[in-house]
Each structure stands twice: as C-alpha cells, then as structure tokens.
Amino acid sequence: MARYHGPVCRLCRREGAKLFLKGDKCYKPSCPIEKRGTQPPGQHGALARRKALVGYGQQLREKQKVKRIYFVLERQFRNYFERAARMKGVTGENLLILLERRLDNAVYRAGFATSRRQARQLVVHGHIAVNGRKVDIPSFQVNVGDQISVREASRRIPQVEAAWQTAAGRGRPSWLVPVEGEEMSVRVARLPQRDDIDRQINEQLIVELYSK
C-alpha cells in the first residue's frame, strides 16, 4: 500500500498543530512548531496568512488532521468511517475508537515506540506479538483481553528500549495495562473510550463532511 515518505514535520505545520509524528523530537525545542510557530510550510510560508476556515474547508482540514495523526490513507480512512456508521452509537466516536484500536496505535500507546510511524515499522517488521503470536498487520484490531508484547528477540533494539524507558513520562492510556512479571507486555483491559483520545479532535466535522 502507498505511504507518505516525505518530511513529517511539514504535516504538523500544514495543520497548524503538533501531531506528534516525529517521536522524541516533538517534545524538544528543535521541533519546527516550537521554532517557527504554526506558519505553513513552503517557500512563502512566512508570508502566508492562515484564513479562518468555515464550512467545507474546516471539515476537510479536520479529516486530513486525523488521517495524518493515525497515518492512514484516504481509502482506508473512508472504510473506517463506513464501518463506524454501521455500528451502534455515535458515528464520530466509533470512528476514533476504531482508529485507536489499530495495532500500530496500540503499540505506540503502550510505549513500545515514540511515534505511530515507528510503531508501524515495528509491526511490519515482525517485532510485535499479540497473544503470543506474531502479527505484522498495522491495521489489526485489538480486543479486550489481548496481550500485546514485543517479541523476546526484539526487546534489545535500542529504539524500543529507549521508548519503553520514557513511556511513563509520555503517559499510557488506562485501557492498556502493563502485565506484571512480563517485560514489555501490556494487556487490553477495556476498549478505548472518547475520553482516552485527543480532545482537540472534532470528529463531528468529519461526519458532516462524509454525510454530504
């Protein structure tokens, strides 16, 4: 499947907010958002003025922001929305919960990686196991009771060790609970809820966009 290979910091500047796509760099003064503010990227970014978005423009930007946060492409994102619309409950919240249940996101949230992009790479390269079995599909949906672990042969990877050591400082959601007595392993205690997800996301704008 096609993926974005360009500089991810440009995506944050395009959305005018930190999307935490670059791992540890996002928490340092070297972050472009800290250095340059929220000016758009590009040659004329410093001269560009951000216009107040309304209607379709506002809805489109919100959709693009969420796609970039979870690192999914348009067709896959649309499939998530259609699935969310068929589920009971609020469509927008269902959409975010489905995205949050992706294995690459769970790996990031658990503290095995410092960004979702890094977490996706760990999954694709076969470093992650679910219930003791290797799973290399980033979009795999985790369920209550699943145990997500870094495979034993991969636990000494420097990036994984560094991410795990700093995970407590970044914070871990309450729906993922470390497994006592096991190294680099968490259990899905419950499904994620809206309160566990970034409150700056306005999912209703995405629902309005796709409902036209």
Score class of each variant (00 low, 15 high):
97 I>S: 02
208 E>P: 06
189 A>W: 07
211 S>N: 13
160 V>Q: 03
156 R>N: 14
74 E>F: 05
16 G>Y: 05
127 H>V: 08
12 C>Y: 06
143 N>Q: 15
24 D>I: 12
85 A>V: 04
198 D>G: 12
47 L>R: 10
88 K>P: 08
166 T>G: 06
35 K>L: 10
130 V>H: 01
111 G>P: 04
39 Q>D: 14
106 A>W: 02
203 E>G: 03
113 A>G: 04
121 Q>W: 09
208 E>M: 10
203 E>M: 05
7 P>L: 08
82 E>C: 11
211 S>R: 13
44 H>K: 13
31 C>Y: 00
28 K>L: 14
193 Q>A: 11
79 N>L: 14
16 G>M: 10
1 M>A: 14
67 K>H: 09
5 H>I: 15
179 V>H: 01
33 I>T: 07
112 F>K: 01
160 V>T: 05
179 V>N: 00
170 R>M: 03
27 Y>D: 11
87 M>D: 12
166 T>M: 04
40 P>A: 07
127 H>P: 07
100 E>I: 07
211 S>G: 06
195 D>T: 15
137 I>P: 04
114 T>E: 11
74 E>N: 11
200 Q>I: 09
107 V>H: 00
10 R>Q: 14
205 L>S: 05
114 T>G: 10
155 R>C: 10
116 R>D: 03
19 L>I: 13
177 V>M: 01
140 F>L: 09
176 L>T: 03
22 K>L: 15
40 P>R: 01
150 V>K: 00
157 I>W: 01
91 T>G: 05
43 Q>H: 15
201 I>F: 10
50 R>N: 07
113 A>S: 13
98 L>V: 08
69 I>V: 14
211 S>I: 05
53 L>D: 02
6 G>F: 09
78 R>Y: 14
23 G>L: 06
31 C>V: 12
177 V>N: 00
57 G>R: 15
110 A>L: 08
132 G>L: 06
189 A>E: 09
108 Y>P: 03
32 P>M: 01
143 N>D: 10
69 I>G: 07
70 Y>E: 10
77 F>T: 12
87 M>G: 06
158 P>F: 02
39 Q>K: 09
15 E>N: 14
117 R>W: 13
41 P>R: 04
112 F>W: 02
148 I>C: 10
160 V>S: 02
193 Q>Y: 06
26 C>N: 03
120 R>W: 06
29 P>W: 02
39 Q>I: 15
135 V>T: 09
96 L>T: 06
146 D>K: 00
122 L>V: 12
26 C>E: 04
107 V>M: 04
147 Q>D: 12
188 V>E: 11
22 K>H: 13
155 R>K: 15
104 D>T: 06
124 V>I: 15
207 V>L: 02
192 P>N: 00
181 G>T: 07
164 W>S: 02
57 G>F: 04
131 N>M: 02
190 R>P: 13
14 R>V: 06
149 S>P: 08
187 R>S: 13
13 R>K: 11
24 D>N: 14
121 Q>C: 05
212 K>G: 11
191 L>Q: 05
109 R>F: 04
193 Q>D: 07
103 L>I: 04
27 Y>H: 10
190 R>L: 09
40 P>Q: 05
80 Y>K: 10
138 P>W: 00
